[in-house]
Nucleic acid binder design. Structure first.
Length: 586
RNA sequence: GCGCCCGUAGCUCAGCUGGAUAGAGCGCACCCCUCCUAAGGGUGAGGCCACAGGUUCAAAUCCUGUCGGGCGCACCA
């Protein structure tokens, strides 16, 4: 409907331009919105106010000219000029009912569109280091990224969902070494565990698994392990030097194959756990992209060479630096350390180069808000490589703060007392977790009330929406049981009987759904869909309480059953995009 | 100190990419099931949209500054 009105207005503008009443070089943006108040008709446009100045006319006078030039259309009953110069459109009586047969015939596809025009878009999200289980912070990124990808899919983009696996680099070495050290402890060796090592309980489980499988093959004496290793921090040394030396010692004592046993055991176990966790959370990926593959395939070196060729690198203090300040970054960044090791940032450059080489029309990164400082350097790298940094959008997700019993749940990575995503899912359920995570704007700090997410009452928006869905199912069942089953044809033929304010409001709300989806997708704001569903469920519950559906009058009954089914379909479609189930009974 | 995000009802948050009287839920005070699931509905109170300037026919929305909160500023990942 909006696009129809837009084309009418365009025609009017063109007509006035042809008559030289408007300058010909105008390229206005056509804003047509649904009115909030029925007194202002069904749709309104502010076009006359926007064009008043360039046209040299008073807004209301221009509005009058536009209205005069507007082609007649059967769907428009009348237009009015109101307020400072709004053009209000009143739809032909009866047109509001058209949405119902549309919903019924399109079913699960209702609301989908083609605005994405098949553009190839990558959404990279979560990408947590495989050094431990996902925690509740990652959960928000997962829910947000997955829902965003679903939305983009629904409006016609070709979506590639990707998880970047940081399986290379120092943290992985610390992890592998930690597993080996725990293994040594299980073999009865006694020593002080490095303060910078990974201490979570899951490490011990991996060590135990290696022990079960390989026996004491990789047991080395405490003397061999710790001889000439610089002191750890509690002993007055440097914890970084300490752990780095232990990593080297592990590689040396275990050999390439032995070290790989621990490295792979750690990676496979933790990454496997992350995959299971996300799958159970309803999050699926097109691709799990390995950082190691970038090094192995020479992409990292290739990216560095390309920057070198473009004159964007220089050497200082033995390290190789990238001139990111040329592109607005705060300072230049190191891509290769003085010990020859390439940095994490170098991998990141190669990864983003790879993304662009794969030919995505658009690339979206969903990052934790604590990474915002990296945006400038990554975009700088893209520019320096000769790509358009505008094609990359980085969306930041703020952390969620958990509350239980009105108290903030304390979390800290250092003490290991963080709440895992799995614990959250087990406590509140997948549906509530998925929904709660996306009810707020992603860049908004969020309070996650665990008690509310668990409560089974109208206070809990997810139950409230699911209950609306179940209620419709229940009505349809009840109607069939009372030998007054829903007659779809009769219902569609008598939609005009739906004339009270509740029903009119519901029809209007349903008609908004396709526009809502499009906006939520293009603005990358899944929370709009969550809000919408809450509103739709609310209007449905009010109607349900005010008017009975299963009544004697067969025509009105069927019309109401038809409207109910349309509501159910839209709620189902929306919940599906959110990754939330739509139960038939509760 | 510099950069990014955020300040809307007592609380948690929307506010349709600048529009016509600022919305919802919770909480609070009342009310509604011989009636399709009360896991629901209704009524009421509650706001100088942090503050000060500016742009505009029009600002919660855009710009500048101030104050307040969060997060970043490694040859770590």
């Amino acid at each position: 409907m909006k696009s129809k009105i837009e084309s009418l207005l365009k025609a009017a503008v063109a007509h006035l331009q042809a008559a030289h009443q408007l300058p010909s070089e105008l390229s206005p943006t056509y804003q047509i919105e649904r009115t909030r108040d029925k007194q202002h008709g069904d749709f309104a446009s502010n076009l006359a106010m926007m064009l008043a100045k360039p046209a040299g006319l008073k807004p209301r006078d221009l509005a009058q000219q536009l209205v005069n030039a507007l082609p007649a259309d059967p769907a428009i009953q009348k237009t009015e000029i109101a307020g400072p110069g709004f053009i209000n459109f009143y739809l032909q009586d009866g047109s509001q009912y058209q949405i119902v047969p549309q919903i019924l015939s399109q079913g699960a596809k209702f609301g989908h569109s083609k605005v994405g025009a098949g553009q190839y878009i990558q959404v990279e999200f979560v990408s947590a280091n495989p050094t431990g289980p996902l925690h509740v912070g990652h959960g928000r990124g997962a829910a947000y990224g997955a829902t965003l990808a679903n939305l983009l899919d629904a409006v016609g983009f070709r979506v590639h969902r990707e998880y970047y696996v940081n399986d290379a680099g120092r943290q992985m070495n610390i992890l592998a070494t930690s597993v080996w050290l725990r293994y040594l402890e299980l073999c009865g060796v006694s020593f002080n565990f490095p303060s910078n090592g990974y201490k979570g309980g899951y490490i011990l489980e991996i060590s135990q698994a290696v022990l079960n499988q390989a026996g004491q093959t990789w047991l080395r004496s405490v003397e061999a392990v710790f001889q000439d290793i610089p002191a750890d921090e509690p002993a007055g040394g440097d914890k970084e030097e300490h752990i780095d030396s232990l990593i080297e010692r592990a590689k040396q004592l275990l050999g390439k194959d032995g070290y790989k046993v621990f490295f792979d055991a750690a990676l496979d176990s933790i990454l496997g756990d992350i995959r299971d966790d996300l799958r159970e959370f309803g999050v699926e990926y097109t691709e799990w992209f390995s950082e190691m593959s970038l090094t192995d395939s020479g992409s990292v070196q290739r990216a560095i060479d390309r920057l070198q060729t473009n004159g964007k690198l220089y050497e200082k203090d033995g390290a190789i630096w990238f001139r990111s300040t040329e592109y607005g970054d705060d300072k230049d960044r190191v891509v290769a350390r003085d010990n020859g090791q390439t940095t994490y940032f170098a991998s990141d450059i190669a990864y983003h180069m790879n993304k662009f080489e794969r030919g995505f029309d658009r690339v979206i990164n969903v990052w934790g808000a604590d990474h915002h400082g990296y945006i400038a350097r990554v975009k700088a790298a893209l520019s320096a490589l000769g790509y358009d940094p505008e094609k990359l959008t980085v969306l930041l997700v703020q952390f969620a703060i958990l509350y239980r019993g009105g108290e903030r749940v304390q979390m800290s990575t250092r003490s290991g007392s963080f709440v895992t995503l799995r614990e959250l899912r087990e406590e509140v359920g997948n549906d509530a977790a998925r929904f709660f995570y996306v009810t707020r704007k992603s860049e908004q700090h969020m309070d996650f009330d665990l008690d509310l997410a668990k409560s089974q009452s109208k206070d809990n928006p997810i139950y409230y929406i699911q209950y609306a869905h179940a209620r419709v199912c229940s009505i349809l069942k009840k109607a069939a049981a009372e030998s007054a089953p829903w007659d779809r044809e009769s219902g569609l033929a008598h939609l005009h009987l739906l004339d009270n304010d509740y029903e009119q409001g519901l029809l209007n709300q349903l008609a908004k759904y396709p526009e809502l989806l499009e906006r939520a997708a293009l603005q990358y704001e899944p929370h709009q869909l969550a809000q919408y569903l809450r509103d739709l469920a609310g209007e449905f519950h009010s109607w349900y309480n005010a008017h009975k559906v299963i009544i004697e009058d067969a025509n009105l009954r069927n019309a109401r059953l038809t409207l109910s089914e349309a509501i159910r379909q839209v709620i189902n479609n929306g919940l599906t995009l959110l990754g939330v189930s739509a139960p038939e009974s509760m």
